[in-house]
Design a protein around this nucleic acid. Structure first.
Lengths: 193, 193
DNA sequence: CGCAGACGATAACATATGTTATCAAATCAG
DNA sequence: CTGATTTGATAACATATGTTATCGTCTGCG
């Protein structure tokens, strides 16, 4: 779905400058919708500064699927690749500096890359790594309680918790912000004893 | 993670006979564990007859991740590819007739295939399709109530519900078998009114 | 055939989580 | 600076789901 690529694609190195030259640098305020759920994605993004979140409409409620920060890249991959409506919205959480790649430029680049088995192999690895990542997220979602997932986040991505408003974090954990408040309170009390 | 490949890989056609010749045909009784969670996967499977389920240990409880039936194939992909312990167990639900491919034979085949961009491209598509499939499962898991998910299953895979014991279905839906009983009862009552 | 284990329904009770409403603090925009 | 908006905490109550235990039925194996 979403990816970070520079380090993972060494065979892409010789194309890197050309690829970056195709990108356009833009600055956008917080809460800008870069892609709306149900639209066909025509762009991919690299984050120079700021934070994005990917979310979807869950029967009227807003459920965050993933967060992205500096030096990460993303696109609504299945929408991008197949020209079908995406399942997610992409939105800035903070004011951001982004580098945007148009799909037509991406496709032009892909026509070249597809002739190179080494690059294709790397790309397949990236895609599989992504899949493994989402699989683990899914497992954690099922297997761990919301409190455990919050403690995991605290441990593994403390910056995320500092930068992102709590109701987004709650929706990412699959709970309401009220419940997240209760969890934080409970953790506090447990610590004091 | 898991895949079905024949139709999706037309460029593989000329290798197909060789690939099938590498498989070994076996018959196994119900409740046979083909791969245990935490083991490194050395085999992939094609199902000629019967039903498999993929599950993981969820804090002592057994949670079903996916079911497979006739003409479908699977392996614990990330374990298979990377020689790391798999996150899932694979187990027969019914007596099965399977075709088994050893990893070393698979690798030998891959060495050839990797030289062909057309095949690699198809494989990447298969992997991405899988990813899209799991993404949709994940969305449904979050967005739909257990009752809705059960009704979806009834509509989309009625055979599954007939063939698979209810507690496996319950664990697949993310609920207890007691709760699934309640749901079935509720659906009955709703129909009668 | 007959029995042990698997399977499914149900009741009573416990717990986790959602909903709605209210309030205070923090932050942002004009 | 100041009013509006966002954010976070909390309480009261409602609902969904889990847990444990019991019971009847089915089914496959010896």
């Amino acid at each position: 779905m979403f990816f970070q690529f520079k380090e993972q694609l060494p065979h892409l190195a010789k194309y890197w400058d050309a690829l970056m030259a195709m990108h356009q640098r833009i600055e956008v305020p917080a809460k800008t919708i870069l892609l709306a759920e149900g639209e066909v994605s025509k762009k991919s993004f690299l984050i120079e500064k700021g934070c994005l979140r990917v979310w979807f409409n869950n029967n009227g409620k807003d459920t965050t699927f993933q967060f992205f920060f500096e030096n990460e890249g993303l696109s609504s991959l299945e929408s991008f690749r197949k020209n079908i409506p995406g399942m997610f919205s992409i939105e800035t959480v903070e004011p951001c500096i982004l580098h945007v790649l148009q799909k037509k430029d991406f496709d032009r680049m892909m026509d070249q890359l597809e002739q190179e088995p080494a690059v294709l192999k790397e790309m397949m690895n990236v895609v599989m790594e992504r899949q493994l990542h989402y699989m683990k997220e899914f497992l954690s979602f099922i297997r761990d309680s919301p409190q455990e997932r919050y403690l995991n986040l605290l441990r593994e991505k403390p910056k995320l918790i500092q930068r992102v408003p709590q109701h987004y974090i709650a929706s990412y954990l699959g709970i309401t912000s009220v419940h997240l408040s209760r969890i934080k309170n409970k953790i506090l009390k447990d610590r004091q004893i």
